[in-house]
Simulated scan of single mutants.
Amino acid sequence: MLEFISRIFGKDSSPSKNVARERLRLVLVHDRTDISPQIMEALKSDLIKVITNYMEIDEAALEVSLDSNENQIALVANIPVKGMKRSGSMAPTGA
C-alpha cells in the first residue's frame, strides 16, 4: 500500500523518469546557450577531425553535449578511443 501511495505522489525513481529528467535538463542547457543543433554537429565534426589526427576513435559512439550548473556551462565529450596513432602516421598540422 505504501509503495502505491509513493508512486502516486512521485516518490518512484524509475529509470524512465530519470531519462526524461536528463533529456529535459539537456534541452534547457541548449536553450540557455542558444546553440543550434547545426552548430553542435559542426563542433562535433571539428572535434572528430582534430582528434583523429592523434587517435583512432569510435566516431559512432562519440557523444558531445553541454552541461551547466548555476554559474557556468561546460562542453562534455565522451570519446571512445580505439588506439593511438604512431607519430609517423599523423597528418601535418598545416600551420
Score class of each variant (00 low, 15 high):
95 A>N: 13
64 V>L: 15
86 R>M: 07
80 P>T: 07
65 S>T: 06
13 S>K: 13
60 A>M: 09
89 S>Q: 10
25 R>M: 08
91 A>C: 07
88 G>F: 03
34 D>T: 15
14 S>H: 10
80 P>M: 14
61 A>H: 13
4 F>N: 10
77 A>K: 11
91 A>E: 12
48 I>P: 02
26 L>W: 01
86 R>F: 08
69 N>T: 03
8 I>Y: 08
76 V>Q: 04
8 I>Q: 10
4 F>H: 12
67 D>H: 14
57 I>G: 02
6 S>G: 07
94 G>Y: 12
57 I>N: 09
86 R>I: 10
47 L>F: 10
6 S>C: 10
5 I>R: 02
56 E>P: 00
74 A>S: 12
55 M>W: 13
13 S>G: 00
80 P>S: 04
65 S>E: 08
73 I>E: 07
3 E>G: 06
12 D>A: 15
54 Y>S: 12
88 G>C: 07
43 L>Q: 03
40 M>F: 02
87 S>G: 03
22 E>D: 09
65 S>K: 15
21 R>L: 09
3 E>L: 09
52 T>P: 01
47 L>P: 01
81 V>K: 10
27 V>M: 13
56 E>T: 15
82 K>R: 15
29 V>L: 03
55 M>N: 05
58 D>V: 13
14 S>A: 11
68 S>G: 12
30 H>V: 02
47 L>A: 06
65 S>Y: 13
42 A>D: 09
39 I>K: 02
83 G>P: 09
88 G>N: 05
71 N>I: 07
76 V>W: 07
92 P>N: 15
28 L>E: 11
59 E>W: 02
30 H>C: 08
66 L>H: 04
47 L>R: 01
79 I>F: 06
30 H>F: 12
51 I>T: 15
1 M>C: 09
69 N>P: 01
71 N>W: 08
49 K>G: 07
30 H>A: 10
66 L>R: 02
28 L>Y: 10
21 R>Q: 11
3 E>I: 15
80 P>K: 03
24 L>G: 04
69 N>C: 04
60 A>D: 14
53 N>Q: 08
53 N>P: 00
1 M>F: 07
42 A>P: 00
79 I>D: 02
61 A>I: 01
73 I>D: 01
2 L>W: 11
93 T>V: 14
90 M>D: 00
5 I>V: 12
58 D>A: 08
13 S>C: 06
51 I>P: 01
81 V>Y: 06
54 Y>N: 12
94 G>I: 02
4 F>M: 13
29 V>W: 05
78 N>V: 02
17 K>D: 08
70 E>R: 13
31 D>F: 05
19 V>I: 14
64 V>N: 00
24 L>R: 14
36 S>C: 04
45 S>W: 06
12 D>N: 14
92 P>D: 14
40 M>E: 15
20 A>T: 06
72 Q>R: 04
32 R>N: 10
85 K>H: 05
75 L>D: 05
46 D>N: 12
65 S>P: 00
56 E>L: 10
54 Y>T: 09
70 E>K: 09
7 R>A: 13
40 M>D: 10
69 N>I: 00
66 L>Q: 08
92 P>W: 05
33 T>Y: 05
60 A>H: 04
36 S>Y: 01
19 V>F: 02
90 M>N: 05
12 D>F: 14
57 I>V: 15
30 H>Y: 11
25 R>A: 11
18 N>E: 11
20 A>S: 13
